[in-house]
Design a protein around this nucleic acid. Structure first.
Length: 149
DNA sequence: CGTATTTGACCCAG
DNA sequence: CTGGGTCAAATACG
C-alpha cells in the first residue's frame, strides 16, 4: 500500500497489508526490502498475525507447508521476534491473487499495490523486469517454498 | 470511463 | 527533531 525510502538503506521499502485489515481487522502487515548487498534478494518481514478468515483458513489449510526458503531468506534478518511478533511462517496472502480487483477498499488497492509498488526501486543495475519477478517471488514464496539461491 | 499504479503529505513514535 | 509508516490524491494506461 505504500513505499518509503529508508535512511541507511540503499533501496526503498515496500509495505504490504492484509486485504482484510479494514474488513476483519486483520493487523498483519508485511515489509519487503531488498538487501543492499544483494538487490536480487528481498528481506520480507511479517509484522503481527493474521486474524482474517481467509488467511487463517489457508494457514490451517491442507497444503500449507512451512516456507523453508524463508529461512534462507532471513539468514540475514536481525529483527528479533520478541514482543509477540510472529515470524514468516504465515503468509499474508489469502487464497487467490487477483490482478484486477473490483476495488479492494476504495481508491487504490492493497493487492494492486502489492503487485506493483517497487516501480522506482530499480535504477542502477536493476531494470523493470525486476519488479516483475518480485511479484512472482512474493507470490510464490507466500504459497510454497522456493529455492532461489 | 474505469482501473491500476505511483508519488506526496500527514501522523505517530522514538 | 528525525525517521518510519500509513492513507489519500493525482496521473497514466488499458
Amino acid at each position: 500500500y505504500g513505499q518509503k525510502d529508508i535512511l541507511g538503506a540503499a533501496y526503498p521499502r515496500a509495505y504490504f497489508r492484509c486485504t482484510h485489515r479494514h474488513s476483519q481487522g486483520c493487523q498483519a502487515t508485511k515489509q519487503v526490502q531488498r538487501a543492499h548487498a544483494d538487490p536480487l534478494l528481498f528481506d520480507v518481514v511479517y509484522l503481527g498475525a493474521h486474524t482474517c478468515a481467509q488467511a487463517t483458513a489457508i494457514l490451517a489449510g491442507p497444503e500449507q507447508q512451512p516456507p523453508a526458503a524463508f529461512a534462507l531468506e532471513h539468514q540475514q534478518q536481525e529483527t528479533s521476534p520478541e514482543e509477540g511478533i510472529q515470524w514468516p511462517v504465515e503468509p499474508v496472502t489469502p487464497p487467490p491473487f487477483p490482478s484486477s480487483p473490483a476495488s479492494c477498499y476504495t481508491p487504490g488497492s492493497p493487492w494492486c499495490q502489492l503487485a506493483g509498488s517497487y516501480g522506482y526501486a530499480a535504477g542502477g543495475d536493476d531494470t523493470e523486469y525486476d519488479a516483475e519477478f518480485v511479484e512472482m517471488f512474493l507470490n510464490l514464496s507466500e504459497f510454497q517454498n522456493i529455492c532461489h539461491l
